[in-house]
Simulated assay, not measured.
Amino acid sequence: MIIPTLETPRLILRAPRMDDFPAYATLMASPRSIYMGGPFDHRVAWGLFCHDVALWSLYGHGALMIDVKETGICVGQVGINHGPLFPEKELGWLLYDGFEGHGYATEAAEALRDWAFSTLNLPTLVSYFDPDNHRSMAVSARLGGTRDDNAPLQDEGDVVYRYRPTK
């Protein structure tokens, strides 16, 4: 499977590389990862990072790193998760500390969502949220996601937003 590179007006979404792991591991070890089940130690962060890459071979989708075109700085990750831990294909994102509030998550997630609907012909995607993760739920709403209280949950207590193709 060839991992695609997607471009938006401000961002390049590209395949993960080894030099992306230190910043990823730092985020996963921090209190900011609480909404993803963290904080995680280095070993678990490595497993999560490898999961994100392996999904491309196993399912034809996975994680892409988010680079800002103007600076070349990697500001986070966006991905489509699946496998035995996810009842449905999940659109997810994370931003590294200091890069929130610039619209990067919305722009990256919109590009990957649209790619998934047009290239993979998916009928739907979901995002799973901790009920206290209001900022990410706001991103989901900006993406056109609607709350789906009937969706199967990844973890008990999750809030689920659903996306459908608009075309």
Rank of each mutant, 00 (worst) to 15 (best):
A63H: 13
A63K: 14
A63L: 12
L64Q: 09
M65A: 13
M65T: 15
I66D: 11
D67E: 15
K69W: 07
E70D: 10
E70A: 15
T71S: 12
T71P: 10
T71Q: 12
G72L: 04
G72H: 10
I73T: 15
I73E: 09
I73Y: 08
I73V: 15
G76P: 01
Q77V: 15
V78A: 03
G79W: 07
G79F: 03
I80P: 06
I80V: 13
N81V: 05
N81G: 00
H82W: 10
G83R: 01
G83S: 01
G83F: 04
G83H: 10
P84E: 12
L85Q: 09
L85R: 14
F86V: 11
F86Q: 13
P87I: 10
E88P: 01
K89T: 15
E90W: 06
E90I: 11
E90H: 10
L91H: 04
L91F: 08
G92I: 09
G92P: 08
D97Y: 15
D97I: 15
D97P: 14
G98V: 06
F99A: 09
F99R: 07
E100R: 13
E100A: 14
G101W: 03
G101P: 02
H102I: 12
H102K: 12
G103F: 10
Y104W: 15
Y104C: 14
A105S: 07
T106M: 00
E107A: 14
E107L: 10
A109F: 11
A109G: 11
A111L: 00
R113P: 01
R113W: 07
R113S: 05
R113G: 01
D114L: 03
W115N: 04
W115I: 10
A116T: 13
A116P: 12
F117N: 04
F117A: 02
S118N: 07
S118V: 06
S118K: 11
T119M: 07
T119H: 12
L120E: 13
L120S: 11
N121Q: 06
N121A: 07
L122P: 05
L122E: 09
P123Q: 08
P123K: 06
T124M: 07
L125T: 05
V126Q: 05
V126E: 03
Y128N: 09
Y128W: 09
F129S: 05
P131C: 02
P131V: 06
P131A: 05
N133A: 13
N133S: 13
H134W: 05
H134T: 09
R135K: 14
S136F: 10
S136K: 12
M137L: 10
A138S: 07
A138G: 05
A138F: 01
V139H: 08
V139Q: 00
V139A: 03
A141S: 02
A141P: 02
R142W: 00
L143A: 00
L143I: 04
L143T: 03
G144W: 12
G145I: 01
G145K: 01
R147A: 04
R147G: 08
R147D: 03
D148L: 04
D149T: 13
P152R: 10
P152L: 09
P152E: 07
L153V: 08
L153W: 12
L153H: 08
Q154N: 13
Q154I: 14
D155Y: 08
D155H: 06
E156I: 14
G157I: 15
D158E: 02
D158M: 03
Y161M: 00
R162E: 00
R162G: 03
R162L: 06
R162A: 05
Y163R: 00
Y163A: 00
R164G: 02
P165C: 04
P165A: 01
